[in-house]
Write a protein that binds this DNA or RNA. Structure first.
Lengths: 110, 110
DNA sequence: CCGCATCCCACTGGATACTG
DNA sequence: CAGTATCCAGTGGGATGCGG
């Protein structure tokens, strides 16, 4: 039933995958390079481990990020952008520009 | 408390404003030009009048779209992109490209 | 250190009916 | 035609505690 949307509208697909509250933030953080779980969490202290884990798994299932586990003790897990995640960089850049501009334009209004 | 995010991270701001389930779809439809309420609704039959109204009001409050009411009978209301909405066009274009690409790359995998 | 399981709440957004 | 009003369900995401 929602296959119709996804076929017709790439934006609907994008919204479905990138929607959520954290997806873009996570990808944005990863755009600077590989990060470990704890590092990601420290850059976004507002979300809990549980939520971060869920989001990472979701993004992984959509093949936007890679998850590399090192069989060590203590464990180490590194996240990085996968191919489709890398292709999202132009979007993130434009979005960043827009967000900055928006803040400037609404400083006096809000 | 979330002012911290908004100051630090333009992406968080963008996600807050553009999040939702329909924001990007609506803006995407309006990117082709001015549309009346009914036309918008026809292009997205999956959402109800009530939901569409709410989203339009929200986007208007963020100054992404303009709402022009014609004092006629039957009433006519036209929606168009406002300044900050127009500045979102590059994002929408990149997102569209990405969505199309994503579909291609996942045809055999899904 | 990294993450899973469980529980739970708030809020988004949908259904439906009515109106100028 | 373009809404409002009301009510309600689903789910996204947070809190907490345990485990390898």
């Amino acid at each position: 039933m929602n296959k119709i949307d996804l076929d017709d509208c790439p934006i609907a697909l994008a919204q479905k995958i990138l929607g959520g509250k954290w997806a873009l933030r996570i990808l944005y953080n990863l755009s600077t390079g590989i990060l470990r779980f704890g590092e990601l969490n420290r850059q976004m202290p507002e979300l809990t481990q549980a939520t971060l884990t869920k989001e990472l798994r979701r993004l992984e299932s959509f093949q936007l990020i890679n998850r590399k586990v090192y069989p060590e003790v203590p464990p180490r897990v590194e996240y990085s952008l996968a191919e489709m995640g890398l292709k999202l960089l132009p979007v993130l850049r434009e979005l960043e520009i827009w967000g900055d501009e928006y803040k400037k334009n609404t400083l006096n209004n809000n």
